[in-house]
Design a binder for these strands. Structure first.
Lengths: 194, 194, 194, 194
DNA sequence: TATGAATGAGATTTCATTCAT
DNA sequence: TATGAATGAAATCTCATTCAT
């Protein structure tokens, strides 16, 4: 279960491609192995089972979101500006990796409850960062003092998620990132409630 | 493929129960048949295949949402007030039918891409009503004139959806309907953008 | 799990043939199904899993031994004569069904500990009958009064088992049943210990 | 394929431990290698394949039995007394090495027919010694003149084997060696048939 | 000699769907 | 209409063995 060796990364990347191109239920281990250029059995030197591959895909890729957002949060910007950057980042990461967008928005949701539970655990770290951001906005009075943090975060995440899913289901035909400012603007107005 | 005979409804209702109680992947046709009190083969006199049962579940239940929203839209209320009623209705219908909430928010999402595309088609009628509502709000200047209708609707639906999913994943432990006013308030501020 | 329908018996009989001809580890479910003239899946309408087929083979066939011995025990014969008949019966049943002999003496012993534990449970009924026979012989003073029943039964069963296994490993080349009198005679002398 | 180097013995001993503790089917080559403190690949410098390890286990351990029996046969004792010593030796060797008892009586019997045929070949040397002993007993008229040597040996070995297997399956809870005199006595009466 | 990462063949079981009755 | 026994395709994972170092 070495998570640093290049072969580990090879397999994770192969999994994203195979799932995106074949769909969750047609992403057999043998297909992933072939795409990664290894034998079927080799997969099991790096992953406990198939579910472990999928959760790893999500964990590895989620890192990008989390790292980026962490960096944004350290910047010398207003909370509103930071929120704008967060939305833009979320859209950009997925627009830049169309395979990943399909996997996170459509395919990985077909997983069973167990796997989704694990995915949610990974997601939690990201959601906490969003919570922190919103909390800061309330504290420094950029957002309404009586803002319900949980609802606000659900609005933030739900809006981004639905926007991206629609974009993916429309076959990524339009430019997602360019919608970020409008989305941020609406969300900010919602949070400001002056 | 008679959709009026009582047995048709029996099977749809059985499907909701079986899926809610066993989960999507454990909802075998034979279980649904047993719950409905018919033989496995009988299912296929009323439904083309398993997918057809699931899409029917969604279609039948969606009717409630659509009927309620249509009625709300005919009322003599401001667009903002109507939007509040729509959010409350969405929350109330699912709070009143916990099985249905589990099925729509968690279980049916595990279906494959094909089925989800079909579900989205059924959903479209509901989304169009939301679009109409938002459009009216823009036209009568309750909402910002430059509101991007599609994004606004994605924010509206995405927020409601994420809020309900969180509630279901928290085992429906708190009162969902009582959150509706706060959610509406945030959304309205977002749409007004004065 | 119908154990009376003809298909159940068909599958058990097919299993004996397939195991005898291919060996335990080459007796795939699909081979058994083919030999029985049913689809692979049909097996699972009658058996919980593969292990259940194998234990059923043993249980069904063991019945013959048990029935025969029970009948012998009711006869109006001396204990020594009954013991002779028991040995002869044991040899005859296996000589008459060469496939079964291979399965019980060689193939089924390759099963894992779990299955062997279950097989031993089935065997126990037969061993108890042997115990009863020996006990009667002690009580009516045909056998030594200080005979250790457990050891005596282990000698009885162990001798029969080893004799048959040797015969099977010699490809059943000689007449097994004709050896029964000599075997009984030795055993009886052992038990009598005058 | 050096059978003298210490690593060869290391591996054989490791195999006995691993099989006894994990069972035949859970005794993977990698486990044996680990227990022996060598790399998986190293095994194949000393053994042709896995089967070769197992047969070697049997061959190495069988030596103890054979040596002991050979020594007994040279002693200045009656055939009956020698037979008593042989039974006692057989019981004692296995009682003194509980791992070995489990391996020979339960685990190695799960091997496939091929391996068991090879094991029987190794066993043959031991069985020939038993044959010789019995033959001497006939020649010097301690045993019945018309004793069927093969059957007598099958009774001797089968009885010992069944007795030990029962003891192992009863988790070696009672003293096996102390049963030897009773077992010998029964066998001797069987062979004497006066 | 020794290593251990990589290989890849192979089989049980599930379950949507059919069809003879 | 209704039944339910029968079908059969399809995929994860293990582990003995190899071979480059």
């Amino acid at each position: 279960m070495k998570r640093t060796k290049p072969k580990y990364k090879q397999i994770v990347d192969a999994a994203v491609i195979v799932i995106a191109e074949n769909g969750y239920h047609q992403a057999q281990v043998s297909k992933i192995a072939k795409e990664a250029g290894v034998a079927d059995g080799t997969i099991y030197l790096y992953f406990k089972n198939k579910e472990d591959i999928l959760i790893s895909v999500f964990r590895e890729k989620m890192t990008i979101f989390v790292e980026n957002v962490k960096e944004i949060l350290t910047k010398d910007l207003s909370t509103s500006e930071k929120l704008g950057k967060v939305v833009e980042n979320h859209f950009r990461v997925l627009q830049d990796d169309p395979h990943l967008a399909i996997v996170t928005q459509l395919e990985l949701r077909q997983s069973n409850k167990d796997l989704r539970f694990q995915i949610n655990n990974v997601l939690k770290e990201y959601l906490i960062l969003l919570d922190n951001l919103l909390d800061t906005g309330v504290k420094n009075e950029e957002f309404a003092v009586d803002l319900d943090l949980r609802l606000a975060r659900q609005m933030l995440f739900g809006t981004m998620d639905e926007t991206i899913t629609s974009w993916v289901m429309n076959e990524q035909k339009y430019d997602l990132v360019s919608l970020a400012p409008k989305v941020s603007k609406m969300l900010l107005h919602g949070f400001q409630q002056k």
